[in-house]
Design a binder for these strands. Sequence first.
DNA 1: CTAGGGTTAG
Length: 551
Amino acid sequence: MISSITASGGPLTFRRDLDPNALRLSRRKTFISLLRNCKNIAQIPPIHAKIIRTFHGQDAFVVFELIRICSTLGSIDYAYDLFRYILQRLILITYHNPNVYLYTAMIDGFVTSNRSADGAALYSRMIDDSIMPDNYVITSVLRACDLEECREIQGQVLKLGFGSCRSVRLKLMEVYGRYGELVDAKKVFDEMPERDEVAATVMINCYSECGSIEEALELFKDVKVKDTVCWTAMIDGLVRNKEMNKALELFREMQMENVSPNEFTAVCILSACSDLGALELGRWVHSFVESQMITLSNFVGNALINMYSRCGDINEAKRVFKGMVDKDVVSYNTIISGLAMHGESFEAIKEFRDMVNRGFRPNQVTLVALLNACSHGGFLDIGLEVFNSMERVFDVEPQIEHYGCVVDLLGRVGRLEEAYRFIENMPMEPDHIMLGALLSACKIHGNVELGEKVAKRLIESEDSDSGTYVLLSNIYASSGKWKESNEIRGSMRDSGIDKEPGCSTIEVNNQIHEFLVGDTTHPEKEAIYQRLQELVRVLRFKDVMLYINDM
DNA sequence: CTAGGGTTAG
């Protein structure tokens, strides 16, 4: 018997009573399943070593799996090294040329690592090397394509005779949808001989992605037999287009039609709950998932953590997180963000440390979450240290979001000029999020001069919303510049900017209550406003206390 | 014996 093997590189022995060929096949199978079970990159090197020692280092099937797993675990460079190495020495093992599989795996890897351009380039090189594409590599490269490349490949597809290949057509539709080319997507859809529910599902996604939610609904209505996936796609489309209540309505309808939701449906609904603050419904989905024996996969688990954090129940989020046996990078990212959101900065940093100790590789999202924890906790030094070392230590190149976090860090502790200088020395142009953070820091610390400068930049960038004007007007007001404050309000009215009222929702006893700025129609408005006043008093008091403690 | 309709995090 093949002995049990631990993924961490424990004892690994193979039966020796097989003939060489059977032994090779048996080992290959073992390695493949071993690799597939890996959860983080630290588990790979010992297995890879064993693969090489047993002469499977050039086995295309095994290397295929290695490339795939390394890319999904975030080590695309390791995967690419492997790929280049094997291309040079590949021995033809199987009845057909396995090269194209390796290219496919590598292109997929580039796509999942946000390096689509490299994926597309690799495909061109493959064509230059006269390797015959198959429908698999074509579907993969389509994911890596920009619009122009996509059209080019569509031409090739027709020449090579893959024009009737179903998966290629579906992928073409998807790509056209992603680039907003609804006409092209629709054309491919209409030309499909079997416009079944699968193609319709893809088309619904295209519409949703382009914001044509009405057309999506119309198509959805016409689909004869709707399966779980089709319902889920439609619900997801509504969620992405912020039609949360319609999404929930459709979810109820789906159950009435006796189509059973699966884990994907659960994730979509949880995402809607997160957005609506619908804690009760979220809890219901949680128990539903458990009662329906829907696999509590990482997707569902992570969505639950997200839902609980965003709906205010951080303790339940922690419980779900602790209960997950196979936490992945996303689980850590989600809980760290949640903790940061709830001001539990120490906890957030602790989880970060734990994740690194367990061999997980922080990615850009992790570092945004960590930096947020630092800025919410006022840990300026730690935050700056993290930012300055992220590239060297974690191999994550700082992106605009990370720069934004630093601006937030500096701004919150009142080092406003420094934050502004930081923006000016960045290698990229600031976005409105970052400027907005600095502007609100100017408001909090009462810096009129810089606030004006930042607001001006924001307004020029044309990404400003009513919030910019409101903040600027408040900055003027709180420094007694009433005339300027009123002028801003006036120019807002003139330019019609104040057309987007702030809106928030909360769910109480399964009912979603919506509040608009200045809206006084809620039946319990007296009690609500009274409580709000109390909260403001408490917060003011806290603010003053913090200020005193700082002195 | 390598694989593709849907899903998560700031």
